[in-house]
Amino acid sequence: MNDMRMVEREVDTKEVKISARDCQVYYGDNHAIKDVNVDIEDKTVTAFIGPSGCGKSTFLRCLNRMNDTIDICRVEGQIKLDGEDIYDPAVDPVQLRAKVGMVFQKPNPFPKSIYDNIAYGPRIHGLAKNKADLDVIVEKSLRRGAIWDEVKDRLDKPGTGLSGGQQQRLCIARAVATEPEVLLMDEPCSALDPIATAQVEELIDELRGRYSVVIVTHSMQQAARVSQKTAFFHLGNLVEFGETGQIFTNPQDPRTESYITGRIG
């Protein structure tokens, strides 16, 4: 071995799943994302890192048109999923979001039962033929969200009655219930204890066998552990994008180095 790079974790395919070209995002006058070009690969976990307010969540929301829901937000440039422009007027954002699922920074369970929180998506997208099918999907999803054992005896209770960390795992379970092709996760573990965090990381690793996962995280160790690609954002710019092992042993941009090593930058 010629250097001390972390062992490069195997990436099954290098096919591009999502490509962004000259992406700009404005909130009114605030230019929040500047000229971002990036290829997110299929069957790969991509981590977005960077200081608070640098635009990670904003850019993540571009990838499934979540910014459409913010009035003052304007997105320019091109974002393609499997080669098709997701901002094309013919694209139905609801269908898009079934393919590109999302777990938000703040847990947002529906004001419904735990069961219905999970069953909602599969039901409207017709993923279950009957109640028995749906039961199977609900249990499997809650297990993948690492929360089954805690809620299996109270599936009919409201999701909003769970603790913060439990709500977050419920939302993760909800997001995987519809089997999205891409899963966007915005700081999914910030409210989780180390065990639940490890379980979610295990889930992410399992998901990347079939899907593309993009995770925003403030934990450098988490980014290093779960991702194969890392993107560093700074003041709305994508400063550095590369193989995770390389970013964490030998970053090329001094701004990346300062940020990840905890230096005054």
Binding site: F248, P251, T261
Partner: peptide, 12 residues
């Protein structure tokens, strides 16, 4: 401290 990048290289 779980050092990374140049800090990791320093320790190694």
């Amino acid at each position: 401290r779980q050092p990374i990048a140049s800090d990791l290289r320093t320790v190694l």
